[in-house]
Lab assay of single mutants.
Amino acid sequence: KKYKVVEVKENKDGTVELVVENENGEKKKITLSKEELDKLKAGDTVELK
């Protein structure tokens, strides 16, 4: 499934919390490390299994 990044929030521990949404409007929260996030920004599309 493809999800669009709608919100990006940095946590104090250096991880980043993303809120992503698919075309049905379903939202998910995922947490990434700073390194994983470096290639993402709001409006990008991510694929989740």
Rank of each mutant, 00 (worst) to 15 (best):
E10L: 08
E23F: 08
V16Y: 13
G14N: 04
L32F: 13
G14I: 00
K12Q: 11
K4N: 02
A42T: 08
N11G: 06
T45L: 13
V6P: 00
E23A: 07
V20H: 01
K4R: 12
S33F: 14
E17Y: 15
E21P: 00
T45F: 13
K39F: 08
L48K: 09
K12S: 11
K41Q: 10
T45E: 14
K49R: 08
K2P: 04
D38A: 10
T45M: 08
T31R: 08
L32V: 08
T15F: 07
L37Q: 07
L37C: 15
E17R: 05
E35I: 12
K27T: 10
A42W: 03
E17K: 02
K1S: 09
E47S: 06
K12E: 08
N11T: 08
Y3A: 01
Y3I: 01
N11C: 14
D44C: 11
L32C: 10
K29G: 06
E26V: 09
L18W: 03
E7R: 06
S33G: 09
S33H: 11
V19P: 00
E26H: 08
V46E: 09
V8P: 00
K2F: 11
K39G: 15
S33I: 07
K9S: 08
L32E: 00
I30T: 01
K34Q: 07
V5Y: 02
I30R: 01
N22L: 06
G25E: 02
G25W: 01
K49F: 03
E7T: 12
E23C: 11
G25Q: 03
E35N: 14
K1A: 09
N22V: 07
E23Q: 07
E36Q: 10
V6H: 05
L48Y: 01
V20C: 10
E21M: 08
D38K: 11
K49C: 15
V6N: 03
K41R: 11
G14H: 02
K1Q: 10
E47T: 05
E10M: 08
E36A: 11
V20R: 00
E21V: 12
V5S: 01
K27G: 03
V6Y: 06
K34P: 05
K49T: 15
K9P: 00
L18Q: 00
E7Y: 14
T31C: 14
G43F: 03
E36R: 13
A42P: 15
K9M: 08
K2A: 05
V5P: 00
V20W: 03
N22P: 01
E36V: 10
K34V: 08
V46Y: 02
L37K: 14
T15V: 04
D38E: 10
K12T: 09
K2L: 12
G43W: 05
S33C: 15
G43R: 03
K49A: 15
K28V: 12
D13W: 05
G43V: 04
E21C: 08
N22R: 04
E36S: 14
L18D: 00
N24Y: 10
V20E: 00
L18K: 00
V6T: 06
D38G: 15
K41P: 04
E10G: 03
T15E: 03
K1L: 12
D13N: 09
E26T: 07
E10S: 06
K12R: 10
G14A: 02
E21L: 08
L37T: 15
K49V: 15
K1M: 13
D13R: 02
N22D: 13
K12Y: 11
Y3M: 02
T31N: 06
E35V: 12
E7H: 08
V16N: 02
K28C: 15
L48R: 06
D13H: 03
D44T: 03
D13Y: 03
E36C: 14
K39A: 05
E23S: 07
L40M: 07
V20F: 05
E17A: 09
G25M: 04
T45I: 11
N11R: 07
Y3Q: 00
G25T: 01
G14F: 02
E47W: 06
E47N: 10
L37Y: 12
G14K: 01
V5D: 00
K4G: 01
V46I: 14
E26K: 06
V5L: 07
K41A: 08
V19T: 10
K41T: 05
A42M: 12
